[in-house]
Computed example of a mutant assay.
Amino acid sequence: MYNKKYQLLNVLATIFVAFVVLLAILNFFSEPNRKSIFGYRGYTVISGSMVPALQIGDYVILKEEPFQQLKEEDIITFKNDRIIVTHRVVHLTSKNQLITRGDANAVDDLLEVTDQEYIGKVQWRIPFLGYFMILMQNPLFFSVSLALIAIRFVFLWIIKI
């Protein structure tokens, strides 16, 4: 019985470590002015402008699809001044620009999106993961997570002795 509990705890700890490391890497490369990781970026949804498709606290993973391949109904992320926005493409203009709108909004966005503002197309939505990402910005929670990871590695090292 003890061995099965140990094995389960071992698997869960490994999954937690891999999960935190993967998210840390993805977030590091999600800065719009930084190169992405294999064409992917991740962002937390912090507004309700895309309800019901995206909820506050969702985490979206984007792929850098070519701007010319975007079409109406695609959900994209783009820079609007210093703000990162995720909205749906509602129209393509003749000037190779995109008109976007949040699903919960009654009017289109004022600025048209060009290939310079475009960041990527939403590929996946992970419900509630954004709350974890916001929590990771808390120094206490981040420190506890790092401590758990360190304990995991020490525990693995002790087992091998």
Rank of each mutant, 00 (worst) to 15 (best):
Y2T: 10
N3A: 12
K4I: 15
L8T: 07
L8M: 09
L9H: 13
N10K: 14
N10H: 15
A13Y: 05
A13H: 09
I15M: 10
V17Q: 10
V21F: 07
A24M: 02
F29N: 05
E31T: 11
E31N: 12
P32D: 02
S36K: 06
I37Y: 00
Y40F: 11
T44I: 13
I46L: 12
I46F: 08
S49P: 12
S49Y: 04
V51C: 14
V51I: 06
L54V: 08
I56A: 12
I56E: 11
G57E: 03
G57W: 09
Y59R: 00
V60H: 09
V60T: 13
L62M: 04
L62T: 07
K63S: 01
K63H: 11
P66C: 05
F67E: 02
F67N: 06
L70M: 06
L70R: 02
L70V: 07
K71R: 10
I75F: 02
I76P: 01
F78T: 05
F78P: 11
K79P: 00
N80F: 07
D81M: 05
I84F: 01
S94E: 08
I99R: 14
R101E: 06
D108K: 00
D108F: 01
L110D: 12
D115E: 14
D115G: 07
Y118S: 12
G120E: 11
R125A: 15
P127W: 09
F128E: 12
L129H: 15
M133A: 13
L135G: 11
L135Q: 08
Q137F: 09
L140C: 10
F141D: 01
F141A: 14
F141P: 01
V144D: 03
V144Q: 12
V144S: 06
L146Y: 12
A147G: 08
I149C: 09
A150Q: 10
R152W: 07
V154N: 11
W157D: 05
W157I: 09
W157M: 07
W157A: 06
